[in-house]
């Protein structure tokens, strides 16, 4: 169907093949169930890595096919993916720093907190 009237389409129109879209969806459901199953197995320190790996695989599928990145202009892809670079920079440096002074927070004796009832009010707003 997509192929049949493709010739009528302007050059910027790239409909994705339907079976591919449905296949991608099934793969996504499979991965969701997989991540749920693996989370029930004791995998100790790998659990987080595996969950993130599966999430990234799912994200890649969504990006590539649902979001048509597979057919998109290189510049758009580059720009979008560069955002992850900045996010990791943000997370990485902040983590590096807070990790270094975490101890000085942990040893600090924390004062009593204000009563719970008073807390939800905004201060003098």
């Amino acid at each position: 169907m997509a192929g049949s009237n493709h010739s009528d389409h302007p050059p910027f129109n790239h409909p994705a093949p339907l079976p591919l879209l449905i296949g991608v969806f099934l793969a996504l459901v499979f991965l969701t169930i997989l991540t749920l199953v693996t989370s029930n197995i004791e995998l100790a320190q790998f659990a987080f890595a595996i969950a993130m790996l599966i999430a990234t695989a799912k994200a890649a599928l969504v990006c590539a096919f649902f979001m048509h990145m597979f057919w998109d202009k290189g510049f758009n892809i580059l720009f979008f993916l560069s955002s992850t670079l900045f996010v990791s920079l943000f997370i990485g440096v902040t983590l590096l720093d807070t990790g270094a002074y975490k101890e000085s927070i942990d040893v600090f004796p924390r004062a009593a907190e204000p009563a719970k009832a008073a807390a939800p009010e905004s201060p003098a707003e």
Binding site: T32, T35, L36, S39, E42, L43, A47, F48, A51, M52, I54, A55, K58, A59, V62, C63, F66, M67
Partner: peptide, 18 residues
């Protein structure tokens, strides 16, 4: 799809901690 994408990460981060 982006909203979906964010949920794809939120789900394991918030629900699947072991």
């Amino acid at each position: 799809h982006l909203v979906d994408l964010i949920w794809i990460y939120l789900f394991p981060l918030l629900y699947l901690i072991d």
